[in-house]
């Protein structure tokens, strides 16, 4: 008897239950570990897009994964794990918004972000883990003046003012370059099937 692998599995082949030695059967904990490793990057991207606050994103991630761990039995394995996990994270974010007054996105934006995240993860052209590398490639392809501001802003985490001083530009000019750079990266991602 053969069984199809789950959507998030690394292998693309089918495996036979009869070929699985008992010693090789992983615990739920091991399987959860695989899912955490697979999903932590894309979940972080989603949470960062939602809350845009690095001081609370780790808390939200932890909350989402612990709930997923607790409710793993409820997960419908015929469906992808990522959207289910992001659904949990979205509810955690909204709950935090209501109870602690945190300023996140509104529900319409949240829904839209969820769709973008789902498309990003379901891209058939890239294996798990290659998508972030594909985004890096898009950044590499930027014109130098755009790549410079992107790296100073995102990688080196400088404030707009600091970048403006460093490059002898106005803050408005830096903002514009960032905006154009994001648009160019978005276009590149779109061409790779990573963005609608």
């Amino acid at each position: 008897m053969t069984t199809p692998l789950p959507p998030n599995d690394h292998s693309s082949s089918e495996i036979s239950d009869t070929e699985i030695p008992q010693s090789a059967v992983p615990s739920a904990r091991q399987l959860f570990e695989v899912l955490v490793r697979e999903q932590s990057g894309s979940l972080l991207a989603f949470i960062r897009a939602v809350c845009h606050d690095r001081s609370i994103e780790d808390d939200l991630m932890q909350e989402a994964f612990v709930i997923a761990w607790r409710r793993l039995g409820d997960y419908d394995r015929s469906r992808p794990f990522g959207p289910w996990l992001r659904g949990i994270a979205a509810r955690c974010a909204m709950k935090r918004r209501r109870t602690r007054g945190a300023v996140f996105v509104d529900e319409a934006t949240l829904e839209s972000l969820t769709q973008h995240a789902n498309l990003f993860e379901s891209s058939r052209n890239h294996e798990q883990g290659e998508r972030i590398d594909a985004v890096r490639e898009c950044v590499e392809r930027l014109a130098e003046e755009h790549r410079t501001v992107v790296r100073l802003a995102y990688q080196d985490c400088h404030a707009l003012r600091s970048i403006a001083d460093c490059l002898a530009l106005s803050e408005e000019n830096v903002k514009k370059r960032l905006q154009r750079a994001r648009a160019a990266v978005a276009k590149c991602m779109q061409s790779k099937g990573l963005l609608a």
């Binding site: 690095r54 973008h116 590398d133 950044v139 992107v150 994001r182």
Partner: peptide, 28 residues
């Protein structure tokens, strides 16, 4: 320490997602 991210108040959902993905790609 978590570093500040570029402001996104005026971004729509698509740009906001791109902003987050660039940030993840370059800052983790």
């Amino acid at each position: 320490e978590p570093a500040p991210l570029p402001p996104v108040v005026d971004l729509d959902a698509r740009d906001r997602f791109v902003d987050a993905v660039i940030s993840i790609a370059l800052t983790t």
